[in-house]
């Protein structure tokens, strides 16, 4: 019976390589993949075959897409690499043979060394600083929830970016800390990132405000670590964004001077 079941699972390798399994089957098969080295090899080979089908479809994307993606990249921190030995718990919703979730052949019990992927000091840019910060913040406790949230967030960010009028802007304070925004006036949406402001007491939060002429600041939400904040429902009269330090949980109105402010004119607001 068990043999039959295994046999049955084996036959899912090709549909799996083609992404042609139902979600529940996909989960079941990926679970099986972790223990079946033969299936892994087969899935990897079949996936390479499937990818050949992808190559032949190559089409030049619209030029504006490049600008949007690169703008987004400037405003988006990276997710740190998982420590390999725990990878399987962290990436179950992506193909394990690609994401490296299964143990390597012949040394499945040996913990693998961490890969030398992080070279932040060689690329000491704002983005690299963000990566380092988020690395320490998230690496210790990377759960599936967080990955799902990160993915959902990528989607929201991508949605703002998909707007034809999406533009990016960054502001720096005197200490080199920065705020980045990608916004679309048409969508009334913005994706905001903070970088370098990690020296916050544990009972304080960074709160983002929308500043409009002759009106009270409107709260756009609280920053959680280095995670970008996605704001929606922005009116075109908005002139700037401001960040203040507030007690945990946030405040209805700012209780302190902004630590950084960014004019929105260059991203199509304030008209």
């Amino acid at each position: 019976m068990r043999l039959f079941r295994r046999e049955d699972l084996h036959s899912l390798a090709a549909p799996y390589a083609l992404d042609a399994l139902e979600p529940a089957e996909r989960v079941r098969f990926e679970k099986h993949l972790r223990t079946c080295e033969a299936c892994n090899a087969e899935v990897r080979a079949l996936t390479e075959d499937a990818v050949r089908l992808a190559w032949s479809t190559a089409t030049r994307p619209p030029a504006a897409m490049r600008d949007r993606v690169l703008a987004a990249v400037r405003a988006t921190p990276q997710v740190p690499a998982p420590a390999r030995e725990h990878a399987r718990e962290r990436t179950p919703n992506l193909p394990p043979h690609v994401w490296g979730a299964q143990p390597p052949p012949g040394r499945s019990r040996a913990p693998r060394e961490r890969r030398p992927f992080f070279v932040p000091f060689a690329t000491a840019t704002a983005a690299a600083a963000l990566v380092v910060a988020s690395l320490f913040a998230v690496q210790a406790n990377q759960t599936q929830d967080k990955l799902d949230a990160a993915q959902a967030q990528s989607r929201e960010i991508a949605h703002v970016l998909a707007a034809p009028d999406a533009r990016a802007s960054t502001g720096k304070d005197t200490q080199g800390r920065s705020i980045g925004v990608v916004a679309s006036a048409e969508e009334g949406g913005a994706v905001v990132t903070l970088s370098g402001y990690d020296d916050l007491p544990s009972d304080r939060v960074h709160q983002l405000w929308l500043m409009r002429p002759d009106e009270q600041p409107r709260s756009l939400g609280l920053f959680k670590g280095d995670t970008p904040l996605v704001a929606s429902g922005l009116d075109t009269s908005a002139t700037s964004l401001a960040v203040t330090v507030e007690p945990d949980g946030g405040s209805p109105q700012p209780t302190s001077q902004p630590i950084v402010q960014l004019a929105l004119k260059s991203v199509g607001f304030g008209e």
């Binding site: 994401w99 390597p104 890969r115 992927f117 960010i157 998909a162």
Partner: peptide, 22 residues
């Protein structure tokens, strides 16, 4: 939209790529 999402995810998750596996 999906392409942008994928390319952005590529940036965000590049650390998850394991060269030993394909």
């Amino acid at each position: 939209e999906v392409s942008q999402e994928v390319l952005l995810e590529l940036w965000r998750s590049a650390g998850r790529f394991d060269p030993g596996r394909g």
